[in-house]
Amino acid sequence: MTKAELILQLKQQIIEQLNLEEVSVTDIEDEAPLFGEGLGLDSIDALELIVLLESEYDIHLDNPKEGKEIFHSVASLSEFILQYQHS
């Protein structure tokens, strides 16, 4: 899977996992922050993203604090997944 494909897939998965009904794939910019201003995600959403990483990518985070940088944007999340898959 190319990075662009992964990014598209992640956007779809995030919308589904977090029930972002009024958001479409084109509304999420690759580099825009997911939390705070961006999509307005909160702490529970961050934990749901950890579940998503586990169930869809078999990546386990021990400490939710690790998620802070990883979940900064869809781009950073895709880079983390690609790196994990190649290591």
Partner: peptide, 9 residues
Amino acid sequence: NRPSPSLFV
């Protein structure tokens, strides 16, 4: 084995 934090709340 994938408990959902948002559902739990």
